[in-house]
């Protein structure tokens, strides 16, 4: 399996380290999960060759990111904000991007295939400004797919989409991930769960955890509990350690983090969201180590 190796990457803005000695192995469909300002976009821009790190290296097999021109040949990138050539048509814009990617032969066929894959073939004569948010995202993915790149970087692809479009988009990414690396970022845990095989949780430019969904969920196993309380009852634990509250009839089901076993609670089977909250809020490091 192809792996993008990121080694000891550092990047600062105005003296503040936005990416801080970060190392990561990116493979398969890979999700970057992190709160606002974690450094996701910055990391993705470094991978997309748009900004140069102060320190650190990136490699995909023999290819080093020092060889910017070669990297751009095998890269597809969808920035966080994608909206360009608003008064032109989908097919015109795709043809232009294909030309920029250096695709000379069978350009029309290739574009048709890609537009079909992202389900935009029927809309290819529409102007960009008349596309819906979901269609625009799919066009963004379509241009990233040109030239059959080995690695595709998509920054917050589901932001601003409605639930149906989000689910559809995640499924599309999953399908496109066969045989290449897809790196996507989000702060919506659900999207990662449906799309990605591997995950890294990052905050303050650091990797807090990386692995498969299962591995990450297991990190907090034994620290997450559930307890049923009535509406009248006082909260048995500090507000800040609560993961979720669900209403069931007249009762509440509390799901919360606790470093030790609490009487009257049952241990929960942990999921990715538990791990994300525990790690990014620092509960685990505060209490366990």
């Amino acid at each position: 399996m192809n792996t993008l190796s990121i080694n000891q990457l550092t990047k600062s803005y105005a003296g503040k380290k936005v990416i801080d000695n970060l190392s990561l192995e990116v493979k398969g469909t890979f999700g970057l999960l992190g709160p606002n300002g974690a450094g996701k976009t910055t990391l993705m821009k470094i991978i997309a060759t748009l900004i140069k790190p102060e320190q650190g290296t990136l490699h995909l097999n023999d290819l080093s990111w020092q060889q910017t021109d070669q990297v751009r040949e095998i890269l597809g990138y969808l920035p966080q904000h994608f909206s360009i050539y608003k008064s032109l048509r989908v097919d015109e814009v795709m043809n232009h991007f294909a030309l920029l990617k250096g695709i000379k032969e069978n350009r029309e066929t290739i574009i048709q295939e890609i537009l079909a894959a992202v389900n935009l073939l029927d809309d290819r004569k529409k102007k960009i400004k008349h596309l819906s948010g979901g269609m625009l995202r799919r066009l963004g993915i379509a241009q990233a797919l040109l030239g059959d790149p080995k690695i595709i970087v998509v920054d917050e692809p589901t932001a601003g989409l409605d639930i149906d479009e989000r689910v559809r988009f995640c499924r599309l990414l999953r399908k496109l991930g066969e045989g290449r690396i897809i790196l996507l970022s989000t702060h919506i845990v659900e999207d990662i769960e449906t799309t990605c095989d591997y995950i890294a949780i990052i905050k303050n430019g650091n990797v807090l955890a990386t692995g498969t969904k299962k591995e990450i969920a297991e990190i907090v196993q034994g620290h997450v509990y559930e307890k049923k309380i009535t509406m009248a009852e006082e909260m048995p634990i500090e507000e800040e350690h609560i993961i979720s509250t669900k209403q069931i009839g007249d009762d509440y089901l509390l799901r919360y983090f606790s470093p030790e076993f609490l009487l009257g609670s049952t241990e929960a089977v942990t999921n990715l969201e538990d791990a994300y909250l525990c790690l990014t809020r620092g509960w685990l490091t505060q209490h366990v180590h």
Partner: peptide
């Protein structure tokens, strides 16, 4: 215009162009 007013510079600069 497409580079700077439509904010296409990031996308376009990720393409393999000199």
């Amino acid at each position: 215009y497409d580079y700077y007013e439509e904010k296409g510079d990031e996308l376009l600069f990720s393409y393999p162009l000199k």
